[in-house]
Design a protein around this nucleic acid. Structure first.
Lengths: 196, 196
DNA sequence: GTGCTATTATACTGATCTGTATAGTGCTTG
DNA sequence: CAAGCACTATACAGATCAGTATAATAGCAC
Protein backbone atom coordinates (compact mmCIF):
# COMPACT_ATOMS: atom_id res chain seq x y z
CA UNK A 1 0.00 0.00 0.00
CA UNK A 2 2.78 2.37 0.87
CA UNK A 3 4.44 2.20 -2.51
CA UNK A 4 1.49 2.88 -4.76
CA UNK A 5 2.93 6.18 -5.84
CA UNK A 6 6.42 4.86 -6.40
CA UNK A 7 5.73 1.53 -8.05
CA UNK A 8 7.78 1.44 -11.24
CA UNK A 9 6.25 0.18 -14.45
CA UNK A 10 6.93 -3.50 -15.26
CA UNK A 11 10.48 -3.97 -16.42
CA UNK A 12 11.35 -5.69 -19.70
CA UNK A 13 14.76 -5.85 -21.41
CA UNK A 14 13.84 -3.68 -24.38
CA UNK A 15 12.03 -1.18 -22.24
CA UNK A 16 15.00 -0.89 -19.94
CA UNK A 17 17.37 -0.47 -22.86
CA UNK A 18 15.14 2.27 -24.18
CA UNK A 19 15.07 4.05 -20.83
CA UNK A 20 18.81 3.73 -20.30
CA UNK A 21 19.64 5.00 -23.76
CA UNK A 22 17.17 7.84 -23.57
CA UNK A 23 18.40 8.84 -20.11
CA UNK A 24 22.03 9.01 -21.26
CA UNK A 25 21.25 11.05 -24.37
CA UNK A 26 18.80 13.40 -22.67
CA UNK A 27 21.31 14.00 -19.91
CA UNK A 28 24.16 14.63 -22.29
CA UNK A 29 22.38 16.87 -24.81
CA UNK A 30 19.02 17.93 -23.41
CA UNK A 31 15.42 16.88 -23.91
CA UNK A 32 14.42 18.89 -26.95
CA UNK A 33 17.83 18.46 -28.54
CA UNK A 34 17.51 14.68 -28.61
CA UNK A 35 14.96 13.25 -31.02
CA UNK A 36 13.43 9.82 -30.66
CA UNK A 37 15.12 8.76 -33.88
CA UNK A 38 18.51 9.32 -32.26
CA UNK A 39 17.50 7.29 -29.22
CA UNK A 40 16.21 4.46 -31.37
CA UNK A 41 19.30 4.41 -33.56
CA UNK A 42 21.55 4.36 -30.51
CA UNK A 43 19.54 1.60 -28.86
CA UNK A 44 19.11 -0.32 -32.10
CA UNK A 45 15.36 -0.55 -31.71
CA UNK A 46 12.44 0.02 -34.03
CA UNK A 47 10.23 3.04 -33.70
CA UNK A 48 7.12 1.01 -33.05
CA UNK A 49 8.81 -0.58 -30.06
CA UNK A 50 9.01 2.82 -28.44
CA UNK A 51 5.37 3.57 -29.10
CA UNK A 52 4.45 0.14 -27.83
CA UNK A 53 5.88 1.01 -24.42
CA UNK A 54 5.19 4.73 -24.30
CA UNK A 55 2.37 6.82 -25.69
CA UNK A 56 4.59 9.80 -26.48
CA UNK A 57 8.02 11.31 -26.05
CA UNK A 58 6.77 13.23 -23.04
CA UNK A 59 5.72 9.99 -21.38
CA UNK A 60 9.16 8.56 -22.09
CA UNK A 61 10.75 11.58 -20.45
CA UNK A 62 8.59 11.18 -17.37
CA UNK A 63 9.53 7.51 -17.15
CA UNK A 64 13.21 8.40 -17.52
CA UNK A 65 12.95 10.93 -14.71
CA UNK A 66 11.13 8.56 -12.37
CA UNK A 67 13.66 5.82 -13.06
CA UNK A 68 16.51 8.21 -12.43
CA UNK A 69 14.86 9.39 -9.24
CA UNK A 70 14.71 5.83 -7.96
CA UNK A 71 18.32 5.22 -8.96
CA UNK A 72 19.64 8.32 -7.24
CA UNK A 73 17.54 7.61 -4.17
CA UNK A 74 19.06 4.15 -3.93
CA UNK A 75 22.60 5.45 -4.45
CA UNK A 76 22.23 8.07 -1.76
CA UNK A 77 20.59 5.66 0.67
CA UNK A 78 23.48 3.25 0.21
CA UNK A 79 26.05 6.01 0.74
CA UNK A 80 24.32 7.14 3.91
CA UNK A 81 23.98 3.64 5.28
CA UNK A 82 27.64 2.98 4.58
CA UNK A 83 28.51 5.97 6.77
CA UNK A 84 27.30 4.21 9.89
CA UNK A 85 24.78 5.31 12.48
CA UNK A 86 26.13 8.73 13.49
CA UNK A 87 23.62 11.30 12.19
CA UNK A 88 26.39 13.82 11.66
CA UNK A 89 28.53 11.39 9.67
CA UNK A 90 25.50 10.44 7.63
CA UNK A 91 24.89 14.07 6.72
CA UNK A 92 28.54 14.49 5.73
CA UNK A 93 28.21 11.33 3.64
CA UNK A 94 25.35 12.95 1.76
CA UNK A 95 27.59 15.88 0.90
CA UNK A 96 30.41 13.57 -0.11
CA UNK A 97 28.10 11.68 -2.41
CA UNK A 98 27.40 14.95 -4.18
CA UNK A 99 31.10 15.69 -4.48
CA UNK A 100 31.67 12.29 -6.10
CA UNK A 101 28.80 12.98 -8.47
CA UNK A 102 30.21 16.36 -9.50
CA UNK A 103 33.52 14.66 -10.24
CA UNK A 104 32.06 12.09 -12.59
CA UNK A 105 33.23 12.59 -16.12
CA UNK A 106 29.67 12.69 -17.45
CA UNK A 107 28.38 15.13 -14.82
CA UNK A 108 26.18 17.58 -16.61
CA UNK A 109 24.12 19.30 -13.95
CA UNK A 110 20.83 18.08 -12.55
CA UNK A 111 18.60 16.18 -14.97
CA UNK A 112 15.54 17.31 -13.00
CA UNK A 113 16.39 20.99 -12.89
CA UNK A 114 17.19 20.85 -16.58
CA UNK A 115 13.87 19.13 -17.25
CA UNK A 116 11.98 21.90 -15.48
CA UNK A 117 14.01 24.40 -17.45
CA UNK A 118 12.83 22.89 -20.71
CA UNK A 119 9.26 22.23 -19.57
CA UNK A 120 8.63 25.23 -17.33
CA UNK A 121 4.84 25.13 -17.26
CA UNK A 122 3.70 23.94 -13.83
CA UNK A 123 0.93 21.88 -15.44
CA UNK A 124 3.36 19.74 -17.39
CA UNK A 125 3.62 16.12 -16.17
CA UNK A 126 7.36 16.48 -16.59
CA UNK A 127 7.42 19.45 -14.25
CA UNK A 128 5.33 17.52 -11.75
CA UNK A 129 7.66 14.52 -11.88
CA UNK A 130 10.48 16.85 -10.92
CA UNK A 131 8.52 18.34 -8.02
CA UNK A 132 8.02 14.85 -6.61
CA UNK A 133 11.73 14.12 -6.78
CA UNK A 134 12.77 17.40 -5.21
CA UNK A 135 10.26 17.04 -2.42
CA UNK A 136 11.66 13.58 -1.71
CA UNK A 137 15.14 15.08 -1.44
CA UNK A 138 13.90 17.64 1.04
CA UNK A 139 12.11 14.98 3.06
CA UNK A 140 15.23 12.83 3.20
CA UNK A 141 17.20 15.80 4.48
CA UNK A 142 14.57 16.59 7.07
CA UNK A 143 14.70 13.05 8.43
CA UNK A 144 18.47 13.23 8.73
CA UNK A 145 18.30 16.56 10.55
CA UNK A 146 15.62 15.27 12.88
CA UNK A 147 18.00 12.47 13.78
CA UNK A 148 20.58 15.13 14.60
CA UNK A 149 18.06 16.68 16.94
CA UNK A 150 18.12 20.04 15.22
CA UNK A 151 15.40 22.29 16.74
CA UNK A 152 13.44 22.88 13.50
CA UNK A 153 14.37 20.08 11.10
CA UNK A 154 11.95 21.23 8.41
CA UNK A 155 13.25 24.79 8.22
CA UNK A 156 16.84 23.58 8.35
CA UNK A 157 16.17 20.98 5.63
CA UNK A 158 14.84 23.69 3.33
CA UNK A 159 17.92 25.83 3.92
CA UNK A 160 20.42 23.05 3.35
CA UNK A 161 18.44 21.91 0.33
CA UNK A 162 18.90 25.39 -1.10
CA UNK A 163 22.64 25.04 -0.60
CA UNK A 164 22.67 21.70 -2.39
CA UNK A 165 20.53 22.86 -5.29
CA UNK A 166 22.76 25.88 -5.67
CA UNK A 167 25.82 23.66 -5.53
CA UNK A 168 24.57 21.36 -8.29
CA UNK A 169 23.87 24.34 -10.52
CA UNK A 170 27.17 26.05 -9.69
CA UNK A 171 29.23 22.90 -10.10
CA UNK A 172 27.80 22.66 -13.61
CA UNK A 173 28.13 26.36 -14.40
CA UNK A 174 31.68 26.76 -13.16
CA UNK A 175 32.82 23.17 -13.59
CA UNK A 176 33.89 23.21 -9.97
CA UNK A 177 33.26 20.17 -7.79
CA UNK A 178 35.03 21.85 -4.86
CA UNK A 179 31.90 23.89 -4.30
CA UNK A 180 30.68 21.13 -2.03
CA UNK A 181 33.10 22.41 0.62
CA UNK A 182 31.08 25.63 0.77
CA UNK A 183 27.94 23.58 1.26
CA UNK A 184 29.47 21.60 4.10
CA UNK A 185 30.90 24.65 5.83
CA UNK A 186 27.66 26.60 5.54
CA UNK A 187 25.47 23.67 6.58
CA UNK A 188 27.57 22.92 9.66
CA UNK A 189 27.61 26.59 10.62
CA UNK A 190 23.84 26.77 10.29
CA UNK A 191 23.35 23.67 12.39
CA UNK A 192 25.79 24.88 15.03
CA UNK A 193 24.06 28.22 15.36
CA UNK A 194 20.67 26.50 15.53
CA UNK A 195 21.44 24.01 18.28
CA UNK A 196 23.35 26.55 20.36
CA UNK B 1 38.74 50.88 -21.43
CA UNK B 2 37.10 49.25 -18.46
CA UNK B 3 33.98 48.29 -20.33
CA UNK B 4 35.47 46.52 -23.32
CA UNK B 5 34.02 43.22 -22.21
CA UNK B 6 30.58 44.57 -21.45
CA UNK B 7 30.02 47.02 -24.27
CA UNK B 8 26.66 46.17 -25.81
CA UNK B 9 26.27 45.98 -29.57
CA UNK B 10 24.93 49.15 -31.25
CA UNK B 11 21.23 49.51 -30.60
CA UNK B 12 18.70 49.95 -33.41
CA UNK B 13 14.91 49.81 -33.14
CA UNK B 14 14.47 46.60 -35.11
CA UNK B 15 17.36 44.91 -33.39
CA UNK B 16 15.92 45.81 -30.01
CA UNK B 17 12.48 44.56 -30.98
CA UNK B 18 14.05 41.32 -32.09
CA UNK B 19 15.93 40.92 -28.83
CA UNK B 20 12.92 41.79 -26.69
CA UNK B 21 10.63 39.41 -28.54
CA UNK B 22 13.16 36.61 -28.53
CA UNK B 23 13.89 37.13 -24.84
CA UNK B 24 10.21 36.90 -23.92
CA UNK B 25 9.57 33.76 -25.97
CA UNK B 26 12.76 32.00 -24.93
CA UNK B 27 12.00 32.73 -21.31
CA UNK B 28 8.43 31.55 -21.56
CA UNK B 29 8.97 28.36 -23.58
CA UNK B 30 12.68 27.57 -23.71
CA UNK B 31 15.45 27.98 -26.26
CA UNK B 32 15.04 24.88 -28.38
CA UNK B 33 11.26 25.01 -28.13
CA UNK B 34 11.11 28.44 -29.76
CA UNK B 35 11.97 28.57 -33.46
CA UNK B 36 13.14 31.71 -35.19
CA UNK B 37 9.99 31.68 -37.31
CA UNK B 38 7.91 32.11 -34.17
CA UNK B 39 10.05 35.00 -33.02
CA UNK B 40 9.83 36.70 -36.41
CA UNK B 41 6.06 36.23 -36.64
CA UNK B 42 5.61 37.66 -33.15
CA UNK B 43 7.87 40.62 -33.88
CA UNK B 44 6.46 41.15 -37.37
CA UNK B 45 9.88 41.12 -38.97
CA UNK B 46 11.34 39.41 -41.99
CA UNK B 47 13.73 36.53 -41.69
CA UNK B 48 16.53 38.34 -43.48
CA UNK B 49 16.37 41.09 -40.88
CA UNK B 50 17.32 38.58 -38.23
CA UNK B 51 20.24 37.25 -40.25
CA UNK B 52 21.31 40.79 -40.99
CA UNK B 53 21.82 41.43 -37.28
CA UNK B 54 22.87 37.97 -36.11
CA UNK B 55 24.85 35.25 -37.80
CA UNK B 56 22.85 32.44 -36.23
CA UNK B 57 20.23 31.53 -33.66
CA UNK B 58 22.98 30.77 -31.17
CA UNK B 59 24.37 34.26 -31.59
CA UNK B 60 20.90 35.68 -31.02
CA UNK B 61 20.63 33.68 -27.81
CA UNK B 62 23.98 34.98 -26.59
CA UNK B 63 22.88 38.54 -27.34
CA UNK B 64 19.61 37.96 -25.50
CA UNK B 65 21.47 36.66 -22.46
CA UNK B 66 23.93 39.53 -22.39
CA UNK B 67 21.14 42.05 -22.73
CA UNK B 68 19.22 40.38 -19.95
CA UNK B 69 22.33 40.34 -17.81
CA UNK B 70 22.73 44.09 -18.21
CA UNK B 71 19.04 44.65 -17.45
CA UNK B 72 19.06 42.57 -14.30
CA UNK B 73 22.30 44.16 -13.16
CA UNK B 74 20.76 47.60 -13.54
CA UNK B 75 17.57 46.56 -11.72
CA UNK B 76 19.48 45.12 -8.80
CA UNK B 77 21.83 48.07 -8.59
CA UNK B 78 18.87 50.43 -8.46
CA UNK B 79 17.18 48.36 -5.75
CA UNK B 80 20.35 48.32 -3.68
CA UNK B 81 20.96 52.03 -4.08
CA UNK B 82 17.38 52.76 -3.09
CA UNK B 83 18.00 50.92 0.19
CA UNK B 84 20.39 53.57 1.39
CA UNK B 85 23.95 53.28 2.61
CA UNK B 86 23.63 50.66 5.34
CA UNK B 87 25.43 47.54 4.07
CA UNK B 88 23.03 45.29 5.95
CA UNK B 89 19.96 47.02 4.53
CA UNK B 90 21.49 46.81 1.07
CA UNK B 91 21.93 43.05 1.42
CA UNK B 92 18.35 42.69 2.59
CA UNK B 93 17.27 44.78 -0.40
CA UNK B 94 19.00 42.27 -2.66
CA UNK B 95 16.94 39.48 -1.14
CA UNK B 96 13.76 41.52 -1.43
CA UNK B 97 14.45 42.16 -5.09
CA UNK B 98 14.52 38.40 -5.59
CA UNK B 99 11.24 38.00 -3.76
CA UNK B 100 9.62 40.56 -6.01
CA UNK B 101 11.01 38.76 -9.02
CA UNK B 102 9.63 35.40 -7.87
CA UNK B 103 6.22 37.03 -7.47
CA UNK B 104 6.08 38.38 -11.00
CA UNK B 105 3.38 36.71 -13.06
CA UNK B 106 5.83 35.73 -15.77
CA UNK B 107 8.48 34.35 -13.41
CA UNK B 108 9.77 31.17 -14.99
CA UNK B 109 13.03 30.40 -13.26
CA UNK B 110 16.44 31.69 -14.22
CA UNK B 111 16.99 32.31 -17.93
CA UNK B 112 20.71 31.69 -17.45
CA UNK B 113 20.42 28.43 -15.56
CA UNK B 114 17.91 27.25 -18.12
CA UNK B 115 20.27 28.24 -20.92
CA UNK B 116 23.07 26.17 -19.41
CA UNK B 117 20.60 23.33 -19.03
CA UNK B 118 19.87 23.39 -22.75
CA UNK B 119 23.46 24.04 -23.83
CA UNK B 120 25.40 22.06 -21.25
CA UNK B 121 28.72 21.79 -23.09
CA UNK B 122 31.25 24.05 -21.39
CA UNK B 123 32.65 25.07 -24.79
CA UNK B 124 29.36 26.56 -25.94
CA UNK B 125 29.37 30.38 -26.22
CA UNK B 126 25.96 30.27 -24.59
CA UNK B 127 27.36 28.43 -21.60
CA UNK B 128 30.19 30.92 -21.37
CA UNK B 129 27.81 33.88 -21.47
CA UNK B 130 26.08 32.38 -18.44
CA UNK B 131 29.34 31.90 -16.57
CA UNK B 132 30.11 35.60 -17.02
CA UNK B 133 26.75 36.59 -15.61
CA UNK B 134 26.94 34.25 -12.63
CA UNK B 135 30.45 35.39 -11.81
CA UNK B 136 29.23 38.98 -11.86
CA UNK B 137 26.49 38.06 -9.38
CA UNK B 138 29.05 36.50 -7.08
CA UNK B 139 31.30 39.52 -7.36
CA UNK B 140 28.46 41.87 -6.54
CA UNK B 141 27.68 39.83 -3.45
CA UNK B 142 31.31 39.80 -2.41
CA UNK B 143 31.51 43.59 -2.60
CA UNK B 144 28.40 43.92 -0.45
CA UNK B 145 29.78 41.53 2.15
CA UNK B 146 33.11 43.30 2.20
CA UNK B 147 31.20 46.48 3.01
CA UNK B 148 29.63 44.60 5.92
CA UNK B 149 33.13 43.80 7.12
CA UNK B 150 32.58 40.07 7.06
CA UNK B 151 35.90 38.29 7.75
CA UNK B 152 36.07 36.31 4.48
CA UNK B 153 33.81 38.08 1.98
CA UNK B 154 34.73 35.77 -0.89
CA UNK B 155 33.87 32.55 0.94
CA UNK B 156 30.70 34.08 2.34
CA UNK B 157 29.68 35.37 -1.09
CA UNK B 158 29.99 31.88 -2.53
CA UNK B 159 27.83 30.45 0.24
CA UNK B 160 25.10 33.04 -0.04
CA UNK B 161 25.21 32.77 -3.81
CA UNK B 162 24.46 29.07 -3.40
CA UNK B 163 21.44 29.97 -1.30
CA UNK B 164 20.20 32.38 -3.96
CA UNK B 165 20.76 29.99 -6.85
CA UNK B 166 18.95 27.31 -4.92
CA UNK B 167 16.13 29.72 -4.15
CA UNK B 168 15.61 30.67 -7.79
CA UNK B 169 15.45 27.02 -8.77
CA UNK B 170 13.17 26.09 -5.87
CA UNK B 171 10.86 29.06 -6.38
CA UNK B 172 10.35 27.81 -9.92
CA UNK B 173 10.06 24.14 -8.99
CA UNK B 174 7.64 24.60 -6.12
CA UNK B 175 6.06 27.86 -7.25
CA UNK B 176 6.91 29.29 -3.86
CA UNK B 177 8.22 32.85 -3.61
CA UNK B 178 8.29 32.57 0.20
CA UNK B 179 11.49 30.58 -0.11
CA UNK B 180 13.38 33.86 0.03
CA UNK B 181 12.71 33.91 3.78
CA UNK B 182 14.86 30.82 4.12
CA UNK B 183 17.62 32.56 2.19
CA UNK B 184 17.47 35.61 4.43
CA UNK B 185 17.39 33.59 7.66
CA UNK B 186 20.26 31.37 6.57
CA UNK B 187 22.36 34.23 5.22
CA UNK B 188 21.97 36.28 8.38
CA UNK B 189 22.79 33.26 10.54
CA UNK B 190 25.91 32.59 8.50
CA UNK B 191 27.05 36.19 8.75
CA UNK B 192 26.35 36.32 12.47
CA UNK B 193 28.35 33.20 13.15
CA UNK B 194 31.19 34.48 10.98
CA UNK B 195 31.61 37.89 12.60
CA UNK B 196 31.22 36.54 16.12
C1' DG C 1 22.43 60.91 -58.74
C1' DT C 2 24.85 57.17 -57.04
C1' DG C 3 26.12 54.10 -53.99
C1' DC C 4 25.32 52.07 -49.26
C1' DT C 5 22.45 50.19 -45.80
C1' DA C 6 18.33 48.47 -43.75
C1' DT C 7 14.43 46.07 -44.58
C1' DT C 8 10.84 43.28 -46.86
C1' DA C 9 8.88 39.39 -49.42
C1' DT C 10 8.92 34.99 -51.33
C1' DA C 11 10.65 30.88 -52.27
C1' DC C 12 13.50 27.26 -51.41
C1' DT C 13 16.78 23.74 -49.45
C1' DG C 14 17.58 19.74 -46.92
C1' DA C 15 17.22 18.12 -42.64
C1' DT C 16 14.68 16.79 -38.70
C1' DC C 17 10.64 16.44 -35.84
C1' DT C 18 6.77 13.43 -33.56
C1' DG C 19 3.68 10.21 -34.58
C1' DT C 20 1.00 6.79 -37.58
C1' DA C 21 0.00 3.11 -40.93
C1' DT C 22 0.80 -1.35 -42.57
C1' DA C 23 2.64 -5.67 -43.02
C1' DG C 24 5.26 -9.19 -41.45
C1' DT C 25 8.32 -12.16 -38.15
C1' DG C 26 9.02 -15.06 -34.38
C1' DC C 27 8.05 -16.72 -29.74
C1' DT C 28 5.13 -18.37 -26.23
C1' DT C 29 1.14 -20.04 -24.20
C1' DG C 30 -3.18 -22.01 -24.24
C1' DC D 1 -2.10 -25.64 -34.01
C1' DA D 2 -3.93 -21.32 -33.09
C1' DA D 3 -4.19 -17.02 -30.84
C1' DG D 4 -1.89 -13.34 -28.88
C1' DC D 5 2.09 -10.62 -27.98
C1' DA D 6 6.57 -8.27 -28.59
C1' DC D 7 9.11 -6.65 -31.93
C1' DT D 8 10.88 -5.32 -36.67
C1' DA D 9 10.95 -2.91 -41.11
C1' DT D 10 9.49 0.43 -44.20
C1' DA D 11 7.15 4.04 -45.59
C1' DC D 12 4.75 7.98 -44.89
C1' DA D 13 2.36 12.23 -43.07
C1' DG D 14 2.54 16.88 -41.92
C1' DA D 15 4.86 20.03 -39.52
C1' DT D 16 8.82 22.57 -38.26
C1' DC D 17 13.67 23.42 -38.16
C1' DA D 18 17.88 26.74 -39.28
C1' DG D 19 19.63 28.95 -42.85
C1' DT D 20 20.19 30.68 -47.91
C1' DA D 21 19.04 32.78 -52.44
C1' DT D 22 17.12 36.35 -54.96
C1' DA D 23 14.87 40.38 -56.06
C1' DA D 24 12.77 44.53 -54.78
C1' DT D 25 11.92 48.83 -52.00
C1' DA D 26 13.08 52.83 -49.41
C1' DG D 27 15.96 56.32 -47.22
C1' DC D 28 20.19 58.50 -46.36
C1' DA D 29 25.00 60.12 -47.32
C1' DC D 30 28.45 61.59 -50.17
Amino acid sequence: MANILTTPAPSTPKRDLLLDTAAALFYRDGYHAVGIDKILAEAGLAKMTLYHHFASKDELIVAVLERRGRGIGAEISAAIEAAGSSPRKRLLALFEWHEGWFDRRDFNGCAFIRAIGEYPAAKSPIHQAVVKQKQAARDRLEAMLAAMEVPDPNAMAIQIHLLLEGAIVSAHTFGDSGIIKSVRDAALALIKSAVK
